[in-house]
Design a protein around this nucleic acid. Structure first.
Length: 625
DNA sequence: CTTTTCACAGTCGCGCGGATGGGA
DNA sequence: TCCCATCCGCGCGACTGTGAAAAG
């Protein structure tokens, strides 16, 4: 039972009365009986958080491992060895510490924090990047945006004394291009589902707030995995490691290095997906979201909260996704490093901060994070004015649409297209684009099938699905269709179907239907359209990022857009400076000056597609063995 | 001076329980 | 009249960024 320590009854105090306070005043406690709070408190399953386990994610139905089989109990002694780093002898985090752990909706009581929640896994490893502002970094670093850094020669710095990554080196000494794949081995591919959104932040150098109680990431990590053995079992977890050996500070409107990073930071660096372990089929069936992952600067958090990753402020970090094949019992084979796969998406790099430094990032967060709706200055006008006047998405737009672009909305679009067209004013289409520009990077399946009618992909973005306004990121998963990921561009995969709508067995539950079969996903990916080869070349330069943006612009150009809005949309920062009142100002540097989007005005789509057709796509390949 | 912490206001979803309506 | 299902409002907690104060 939590006490409203920070929520005194505002109706009893002076000042503005919050909605809750007003409600309390109206109700005067009338309907809330004395025993109510007690009942609520003693009711184990009540409350927002506790309700979550009802979802498949936490309840475990999709999992072949019932909650009664905590991974921790299966091979408690193996993790230290697997993570390889010299352990300090302290007990594994989370072991016998459950009493101190906060009950979490994800059923973290069943989580195996101790298995991976080990310190010192990452500090010794860095991803070398040229210091400097994001722009320079992107332009200069050969691996700045390479989606699978492991293939980049020299991409990783390892202090001489640092032990090798126990799973087998994510990067072999000196780096290597391509993984050593044992005969018959089956390796997965991972797509960063919300990559366009990540790119948007990355353009300004993503910042992530860290607090003592833990702060969720936004954007959060969200992957789609293919190529796993459907019957094999895997653990999936995210590790956050230092991205470079520098300490950073925000000065003169840009990030600059200042000293060396403290690579001795203790604390949990690993977050195991709550559904681990699970079958390959399970992991491939739906998006793997790490929305509940929290970042903290509280070194003590590792002991009692497996949902927290401990970071250090003003350091740059790189999340990494690990997929480890395990036995049905959840035990990993320590002798077979080929069962470990690591994926790196450099665009997910971020600098941990205790307070936002760059107002561009702040504004992006406010604009895209549904939890920050209250900070949208024009919130009232946005949602009460005519649709045409809106600059930011309606609250009825799925919050998830901001975080996770490829939602079920896309996949269901063929069925509801007419409805959308009939019900949505044209302006809303644009707004959808404005709200979800990342959709440009994640071309919808429909677009893949109907190149002649590109508008579709735009007017589907604001479309609502039942319950689309839910904030809960997990619920998103139940609506998400993997078919929306095809823009990530796998050209051929084993599973294919010839049935165009094979994954829409029931239009009533289109997205759910989308889960059951990867068929159309694959099928759509074989369309051979330009975006099927949409890739992230090894040297993902700032220029290419700009082109990414250009593509967004191009994609939105199909519709008649009010000039004022169009101009705003042509530059993210412009939107914020022009349409939104800035709460904070970036010192000395206007967002326009820094915004790489300014440089992409003259980049045409042809060049873009040409560039992006090289190299690998939005997905990372297996990077280690 | 920079960085971190904390209280705050706002949005949202969930669960509870009263109110309501239909059927036995 | 009773029972049951449904609807609706309220309280709560989770979550966000803000901005001032505190700490370094």
């Amino acid at each position: 039972l939590r006490f409203p320590e920070r929520r005194p009854d505002k109706s009893a105090t002076s000042g503005p009365v919050s909605p809750h306070g007003a409600a309390a005043a109206r109700g005067a406690g009338g309907r809330r009986r004395p025993e109510q709070s007690g009942a609520r408190g003693t009711r184990a399953g009540s409350g927002r958080g506790a309700s979550a386990p009802a979802r498949p994610v936490a309840a475990g139905p999709p999992s072949r491992f019932p909650p009664s089989l905590p991974l921790r109990a299966r091979a408690p002694a193996q993790l230290p060895a697997m993570l390889g780093e010299a352990e300090t002898g302290e007990p594994p985090f989370g072991s016998a510490k459950a009493e101190g752990r906060k009950a979490a909706p994800c059923g973290d009581e069943e989580l195996p924090p101790a298995r991976y929640a080990l310190e010192s896994v990452s500090p010794e490893r860095y991803y070398l990047q040229s210091p400097g502002p994001p722009g320079a970094e992107l332009g200069g670093g050969p691996c700045s945006l390479f989606p699978y850094a492991a293939a980049q020669p020299g991409a990783v710095y390892q202090p001489p004394a640092a032990p090798r990554y126990p799973y087998g080196p994510v990067l072999a000494p000196g780096g290597f291009a391509g993984a050593v794949c044992p005969p018959g081995a089956r390796y997965g591919q991972v797509f960063l589902c919300n990559r366009p959104l990540w790119l948007k932040f990355h353009r300004h150098q993503t910042e992530m707030i860290i607090t003592k109680q833990g702060r969720r990431m936004f954007p959060f990590l969200s992957f789609n995995i293919t190529g796993l053995n459907p019957t094999a079992h895997y653990n999936v977890f995210v590790e956050v490691v230092l991205a470079d050996p520098n300490h950073w500070r925000f000065q003169g409107g840009k990030w600059v290095t200042c000293g060396k990073a403290d690579n001795n930071m203790q604390g949990n660096k690993v977050y195991v997906h709550p559904e681990s372990p699970n079958t390959g089929a399970h992991w491939m069936r739906q998006e793997i979201s790490f929305g509940k992952l929290k970042l903290t600067n509280n070194k003590g958090a590792n002991n009692n909260n497996a949902q927290m990753i401990v970071l250090q402020s003003l350091h740059k970090y790189q999340p990494r996704l690990h997929i480890v094949e395990v036995t049905e019992d959840g035990v990993e084979d320590l002798n077979d490093s080929s069962k470990t796969q690591t994926f790196i998406f450099p665009e997910t790099q971020f600098i941990a901060v205790t307070a936002y430094q760059n107002t561009d990032i702040t504004q992006l967060k406010i604009d895209h994070n549904p939890f920050a709706k209250g900070f949208r200055d024009n919130y009232d006008s946005m949602y009460t004015a005519s649709e045409n006047d809106r600059l930011t998405p309606s609250p009825t737009d799925s919050p998830r649409s901001h975080q996770i672009v490829p939602g079920a909305r896309y996949s269901v679009q063929p069925f509801f297209q007419e409805q959308f067209v009939n019900n949505l004013p044209p302006g809303r289409f644009y707004n959808g684009e404005r709200a979800v520009p990342q959709a440009n990077g994640l071309l919808s399946p429909q677009q893949g099938e109907e190149v002649a009618s590109p508008p579709q992909r735009w007017f589907v973005t604001p479309v609502q699905q039942p319950g689309a306004n839910k904030l809960d990121m997990n619920s998103y998963e139940t609506e998400y269709s993997p078919s929306t990921l095809l823009p990530y561009g796998i050209k051929s995969l084993p599973l294919q179907t010839s049935h165009a709508l094979g994954y829409y067995p029931d239009p009533t539950f289109p997205s759910m239907a989308g889960w059951g079969s990867r068929g159309s996903y694959q099928r759509k990916m074989t369309t051979g359209l330009p975006w099927t080869s949409r890739t992230s070349p090894p040297g993902f330069s700032e220029d290419q990022l700009s082109k990414e943006k250009v593509k967004e612009e191009i994609g939105s150009s199909w519709i008649e857009t009010p000039p004022s809005i169009k101009s705003l949309d042509s530059n993210d920062s412009g939107v914020y400076t022009g349409a939104c009142k800035r709460r904070r100002l970036s010192p000395s540097t206007s967002s326009n000056e820094n915004s790489p989007t300014m440089k992409c005005e003259d980049i045409n789509a042809e060049d873009y597609s040409k560039d992006t057709s090289k190299g690998m796509g939005y997905y990372a390949f297996y990077t280690s063995s």
